[in-house]
Design a binder for these strands. Structure first.
Lengths: 193, 193
DNA sequence: ACTGCCATGTAACTAGTTACATGATTGG
DNA sequence: CCAATCATGTAACTAGTTACATGGCAGT
């Protein structure tokens, strides 16, 4: 390591670090374990990183003095490490929130990918895959509606995102139904020649 | 390395490898360069990996004999490597298409993430970010409609996905408008106290 | 004259994953 | 009594990124 000259002007953190920082920006002291649970509530629109990744980001943020930790000793189990955002952390987070370039969402839709290659399989199997995805999407809407009622008024912005998420899954369900109908149409057209 | 005993029964390839294999399953011989262009057409629903990653996957697929290559020598520029899917490749691809478990889409929506943390910024900035995203989404629908007319009849399944994609972006635009309206409402409620 | 396309590849890095290890406490 | 939860962390790996290098040829 070189001798420190500048106290890291622009840490250029990965998105996950900002997600962690953002969760801490609500003002509560949280453990890595707590953060993982919160991150799971965000899975509807932001892929939850693995548990080990969260602990890694926390250590990185600590090194940059963007969070501070208070260790609570526990008998015969790992010490509880309560993280809190620092002034510097809040500053960096707000800077990101206000000035980071608006990027497109990163999407890897494996079901859409499989439909794209539909010429290599049959409609029966395609319908199975699509239906399974549809069922999953229905479950997600249920989960989101529950989450939203849980959030409402207390956390207005997360509630807004939950509403958005519901709309997203509703749209997916409608789109799947349209695709399913199109597959039927294709079958009928094939039959009638 | 151990001495080869089994000729790699289950290669367990990453998703990107299947995407490449799938593109080759249309029957054309393609270069890495061609594949990158095709992958860019899929960016609406499946994140385009970096160019270097595509070349890497091709080399891996070659090692597994899932593709074969025909080298065309070029004077004073890199040789053109035309890849073609093999019988084994087609088999592995179909196996994946038919039997891979249906996974949820991987989504990292940085705009939704920023809205989630709206308490740390102001509505003016939030509106800017949302509007910029909205504009981008509008562009995407335009691109997709063009692509769909280009695909229609010739490639029915990609056309289906393109339609789905249009619906997705349309839903995003509607959702953003709803969020924008909600922000207005929040402003009015704040004002009236 | 210059920009963009064709075409491949390497090097160094970062983000992320899965699997493992530990072990008491709480709830049904 | 058994399963889940709490709570952190390491090790080995894979997927993916950016930046660089090369250099002719086609179109405006």
């Amino acid at each position: 390591m070189a001798q420190e000259e500048v106290p890291s002007q622009d840490p250029a953190l990965p998105a996950t670090a900002y997600a962690v920082l953002g969760l801490l920006s609500f003002g509560q002291e949280l453990t890595g374990y707590d953060l993982r649970k919160w991150a799971m509530n965000m899975r509807y629109f932001y892929w939850s990183p693995a548990q080990s990744q969260i602990y890694l980001e926390l250590r990185r943020l600590l090194q940059h003095d963007l969070v501070e930790v208070q260790v609570e000793e526990q008998k015969s189990r790992p010490d509880k490490r309560l993280y809190r955002i620092t002034e510097a952390g809040l500053k960096v987070f707000r800077e990101w929130l206000d000035h980071a370039p608006v990027g497109p969402p990163l999407l890897k839709h494996s079901v859409a990918l499989r439909l794209f290659f539909g010429h290599q399989t049959d409609h029966a199997r395609l319908r199975e895959v699509l239906t399974e995805y549809r069922d999953w999407a229905v479950e997600q809407t249920t989960g989101l509606t529950e989450l939203r009622t849980e959030l409402d008024q207390r956390l207005p912005y997360p509630a807004l995102v939950a509403t958005w998420g519901s709309a997203y899954f509703a749209a997916e369900i409608t789109a799947i139904d349209a695709v399913l109908a199109d597959l039927d149409r294709m079958d009928r057209e094939e039959e009638a020649d």
